[in-house]
Structures are given as structure tokens and as C-alpha cells.
């Protein structure tokens, strides 16, 4: 069981995984159950059309609420999950990097014949695995509740595409914080960077479509590369996978280079 840093990390985080997976199941069931009400109401249409354009971005396109795949893409995957997953990513990434160093456990691991690169990579793989297990909660929640909700049907391939991209954006958010933590050893720096990237992405993506001066910067938002409704209507754009994958990979490479050489407190 305890053969590697990877397995040890998964074991350490088993209750974290359980809790977040359960949370994603509950959120998915809740959002699925709201579908009939959101599809039929005309009151929301009137309310949204009277909102300033900048705030309409918070609700999304009302046309997307009429079919379940685009409803779940816009209301669950496009808004709620990335934010919640971002919080999860920061907590997890800090827990795997700076928190362990602050407690002194990182020195204990480094006193063993484990290279710094291997340690970092195995922890990152554990981060990716934990996020994959947690996102399975979304699939379970939707597949379990959709048959019970009127009109809530979605193709499995569409759902898998949405969840795969959710996992990728979570891993990218998590890797930025994780990398900052390992590269610097500073919780404050890693936390600040992680929050800036997530909140910055959210602001740019939400308001960038309707606020002129922000629209030029929207491509700097990581969420720009996770167009959930487009994925539900068509499929995954491979270019988006490349961008998010590159951000994660570059962050990880920088972390490896700096962590290998720096002092560990």
C-alpha cells in the first residue's frame, strides 16, 4: 500500500477525496433537479433582459437553458464547478506543497533516498488523480439524477467531454498553485497567485464578453479555454486542451527547476 510518495499521498488525502466527491455529487444532483423549473419559467427571461449587459454574463445565454446539455453546461460547468473546483484546487495544492513543508514533513521525506524531482512529480500525479476521482462525482450525480428529472437527458460522450475539460481546468488551476508552492516554499505567495489566477479568470470571462475594455484581455483568462456550452453543442476544441496543458506543463517545469535547488525549511 505505502510503496511510493504517490500512494502515500492518496492515502493521506482519502477523506479529502471522499468529501469533495460527495460535494460534487450533491451539486450535480441539485443542478439537474432545477432543470424543469429553469426551462419553463418566463420570469427569468424578463428579469435577465432588463439587467445591464455586464451582469447578464453572470446568468449566461437564456437560450442555453432550454435543452439539458446546454443548461447543465452553462449553469454547472461554466460557472459553479470552475469556481468551486478552483477553491478545491488551491486547498489541495497548498496542502501538498507548502503545508507539508511548514509542518516539517517535507524534510523527513527528503531525508530518504527520494529525489526532489520524483517527489514533486509523484505529488502532482496524486493531485491529478484526486481531481479525477472528485470529478467522477459530477458524472455520478448527473447520471443518477437525470432519469428522474423530466427532460434531463444528455449523451454520455457529451458529459465525458465536459467532465474531461473540467478535470483539465482543475488540474491547471491546481498546478499553478502547486508549482508556486514548491518553487517558492511560501504559502502566502502560492495562495495569492492561485486566488489571482482563479478570480482573475472568472472576472475576465464573466464580464469580458459585455465590457468593451475587458474584452481584449479575455484570452488571458484560463476559463476562456473552457467554453462549456460550446463543448456541449459541439465537442472539445483541441487548441484549448493544448493551451491549458501548456500552462500546466510550464508551471510544473518551473517548479521542478526551482524546487531542485532551493533550501527546504
Amino acid at each position: 500500500m505505502m510503496r511510493s510518495v504517490y500512494l502515500k499521498t492518496l492515502y493521506d488525502k482519502r477523506w479529502f477525496v471522499f468529501g469533495w466527491t460527495l460535494g460534487f455529487v450533491a451539486l450535480s444532483v441539485l443542478m439537474t433537479s432545477f432543470f424543469p423549473a429553469m426551462r419553463q419559467t418566463g420570469a427569468l427571461d424578463a428579469l435577465v433582459t432588463n439587467m445591464p449587459p455586464a451582469l447578464q454574463g453572470l446568468i449566461g445565454n437564456l437560450g442555453d437553458l432550454k435543452s439539458f446539455p446546454t443548461y447543465i453546461a452553462s449553469q454547472l460547468f461554466d460557472i459553479r464547478v470552475p469556481l468551486i473546483a478552483g477553491v478545491m484546487a488551491i486547498i489541495l495544492a497548498l496542502g501538498l506543497s507548502t503545508a507539508e513543508e511548514e509542518r516539517g514533513e517535507l524534510r523527513t521525506l527528503l531525508s530518504l533516498p527520494i529525489s526532489r524531482t520524483k517527489l514533486l512529480i509523484e505529488k502532482w500525479l496524486a493531485l491529478g488523480t484526486i481531481m479525477a476521482i472528485s470529478t467522477l462525482g459530477i458524472i455520478i450525480g448527473i447520471l443518477a439524477s437525470a432519469p428522474l428529472v423530466d427532460g434531463a437527458s444528455i449523451e454520455l460522450s457529451t458529459l465525458l467531454h465536459l467532465v474531461a475539460m473540467t478535470w483539465l481546468i482543475m488540474v491547471t488551476f491546481g498546478t499553478v498553485t502547486f508549482a508556486a508552492g514548491f518553487a517558492s516554499g511560501s504559502r502566502a505567495f502560492a495562495n495569492t497567485l492561485g486566488v489571482l489566477v482563479i478570480i482573475g479568470s472568472f472576472i475576465l470571462s464573466t464580464f469580458g464578453q459585455s465590457v468593451d475594455w475587458l474584452s481584449d484581455f479575455e484570452k488571458f483568462s484560463l476559463l476562456h479555454y473552457f467554453p462549456a456550452v460550446e463543448i456541449a453543442k459541439n465537442s472539445i476544441d483541441f487548441n484549448n486542451v493544448v493551451v491549458l496543458g501548456t500552462v500546466a506543463a510550464v508551471s510544473l517545469i518551473i517548479a521542478v527547476i526551482l524546487f531542485r535547488r532551493r533550501d527546504v525549511a
Partner: peptide, 14 residues
């Protein structure tokens, strides 16, 4: 020295 708090000693030695 800070040992892995969530493991038992047996797991840590393993």
C-alpha cells in the same frame, strides 16, 4: 522531526 501524522508507525516503516 515531523513524521507523517496520518500514518501509523507500521505504515510509515512500510
Amino acid at each position: 522531526m515531523e513524521l507523517p501524522a496520518r500514518l501509523t508507525a507500521r505504515q510509515y516503516f512500510s
